[in-house]
């Protein structure tokens, strides 16, 4: 097997006395769709924040595509190919749906500030290309009908989807999804499962998914890691995780072994 796309090596993060992430090892091979689960406060979001450079690890190292991420700032990590969504939706309050996606296209296509003043043909073409690409992405996720609406005014489920589109617009190799199904109704959850699978396939992107909904996690993930109190307590196929006594004890509860899902 080739080197993993993302690798966490004994990553630890302390907030004062609290060890939010405790010596976690994690390796995700290119192309995988991996789940990260665990009870509330287990440290899942903190792992995302560590990967994306929001926090720096107290000890341990994160590397992406063989390159250590230490010292890189969030936007540089995006440039390296990691994009994310947020558990608490963070859309730009003053941007329209289209502009939300356009602004995320900056990494690849945007003209420089100087060009935007001189407005040569190259500038206009690159701007048109960005708009076209943003519209294509929106169309793909059935959001083009909201093109000119304020992003924050969309219905909740659409906002979550727009966050995924925004992340994809940066052309990531690794996509981190933080509880994309939170707050969705059962029908929407089913749609989301299909959507994640489609993104995984069509954008050939590696995905790390944090999710409480077992229906979603077990449905889409090829492999699952389980966190509890900042420690990784298990890792394996959905089947293996469902049977794992430590996981049942810490998170799933006895019902899960028999196939009854809660959440």
């Amino acid at each position: 097997m080739s080197a993993p796309l993302l690798q966490l090596d004994q990553v630890t993060l302390r907030f004062g006395g609290l060890t939010a992430v405790d010596a976690v090892d994690l390796a995700i091979p290119e192309g995988e769709l991996m789940g990260l689960i665990g009870p509330n406060g287990a440290g899942k979001t903190t792992v995302f924040n560590l990967i994306t450079g929001v926090y720096a690890p107290s000890s341990g190292a994160v590397s992406f595509a063989g390159r250590p991420l230490a010292g890189l700032r969030s936007h540089e990590i995006v440039a390296a190919g990691v994009a994310r969504t947020f558990q608490n939706i963070r859309l730009f309050g003053s941007l329209s749906v289209l502009d939300t996606v356009r602004v995320a296209c900056n990494r690849h296509r945007a003209a420089s500030p100087l060009q935007s003043l001189i407005r040569l043909r190259a500038f206009r073409e690159s701007e048109a290309a960005v708009t076209r690409r943003a519209e294509e992405l929106l169309e793909l996720f059935n959001l083009l009908r909201f093109r000119d609406a304020e992003a924050r005014s969309l219905p909740y489920g659409e906002q979550r989807r727009l966050e995924i589109v925004r992340a994809l617009a940066t052309r990531p190799r690794l996509l981190l999804l933080d509880e994309p199904a939170a707050g969705l109704n059962p029908a929407e959850k089913l749609e989301l499962v299909a959507l994640i699978q489609r993104v995984h396939r069509e954008f050939s992107v590696t995905i790390l998914l944090v999710e409480h909904s077992m229906r979603v996690v077990m449905g889409v993930c090829q492999r699952i890691a389980v966190l509890d109190h900042g420690k990784k307590i298990a890792e394996g196929s959905p089947e293996a995780i469902r049977q794992d006594p430590a996981v049942i004890e810490a998170y799933l509860g006895p019902d899960h072994a028999t196939g009854l899902f809660h959440h």
Partner: peptide
């Protein structure tokens, strides 16, 4: 505008 609205989200889109 993105930076004004939300710096963390802005850096998350690069």
């Amino acid at each position: 505008k993105a930076v004004r609205d939300d710096e963390i989200a802005a850096s998350a889109v690069g």
